[in-house]
């Protein structure tokens, strides 16, 4: 289209990959090297003995760090900072956790169902004292299903960009502008998939509702935790976590 030249699409694609590379830690090669470095039986037991509140604080801390990287990813994405500030906030508030969940598949080992957490790979049992087995299981299932797609780093980068730039989020002020950016991202993603003979991927992606459900489940579990531990949240949870979820 006249508003979307081939050059523009090319630049956008390079930009998505660079933004992803610069803001995703650890790097893919390092994750690959460490994927069998799992917690010992004793270390798992030590995590399981931690009080519920401490485990929630730790998980909120790690999640917040991941979200800060997602904010940096968004800021480097061509077009994001040209949106009005209301819409930047709306997109991040609604999408940051979803992007973290997509990014999590990079740090997930589907062969033993473990995820990198505080330096080593951990199975669901390590998170027992959180008291939300169902949520943890669903998050692991989601990571497992993304890993089955054998996504390349470029594909993860585009998925994250497309999850974030969603013109259907409520309270957007310049919906058309977001939709145009989203459209350009989709064109660039399709071009990448055609070049790499991966067109079939689009039909195999998990439905958007699945990510949304995981995020609502997280907020529900947080509310249940707050009922059990009133007053715990202001004390030790990161302010950004409270701002996004409480």
């Amino acid at each position: 289209s006249p508003t979307c030249s081939g050059m523009e699409i090319e630049l956008l694609a390079q930009d998505v990959l660079r933004s992803h590379r610069e803001t995703s830690q650890p790097r893919a090669e390092e994750l690959q090297q460490r994927r069998w470095d799992t917690f010992s039986r004793e270390e798992v037991c030590a995590y399981q003995r931690k009080p519920m509140q401490e485990m929630w604080e730790r998980c909120a801390g790690r999640l917040t760090e991941a979200i800060q990287h997602v904010v940096e990813f968004a800021k480097r994405l061509r077009g994001f900072m040209e949106l009005c500030q209301n819409d930047q906030i709306v997109l991040l508030k609604a999408g940051a956790m979803e992007v973290v969940l997509v990014r999590m598949c990079r740090a997930f080992n589907p062969d033993n169902r473990t995820v990198l957490f505080e330096g080593k790979y951990a199975g669901t049992e390590l998170f027992r004292s959180l008291g939300c087995h169902e949520l943890v299981g669903s998050i692991f299932d989601f990571a497992q299903s993304l890993c089955a797609l054998r996504l390349s780093e470029s594909e993860v980068a585009f998925l994250c960009a497309i999850v974030l730039i969603n013109a259907n989020r409520p309270w957007l002020q310049e919906q058309a502008k977001v939709a145009r950016l989203r459209g350009r991202l989709e064109v660039a993603f399709r071009l990448l998939l055609r070049r790499t003979h991966r067109e079939g991927l689009l039909a195999r992606l998990p439905p958007a509702g699945r990510l949304r459900a995981l995020c609502s489940q997280h907020v529900e579990q947080l509310q249940a935790f707050r009922r059990l531990h009133p007053g715990a949240l202001p004390a030790a949870f990161p302010p950004l976590y409270r701002e996004l979820f409480a």
Binding site: Q68, V71, E72, Q88, L92, K93, E243
Partner: peptide, 14 residues
């Protein structure tokens, strides 16, 4: 509202 997100977005290199 969203004070921290605002701050992170405004910082050149947060």
């Amino acid at each position: 509202k969203h004070r921290i997100l605002h701050k992170l977005l405004q910082n050149g290199n947060s």
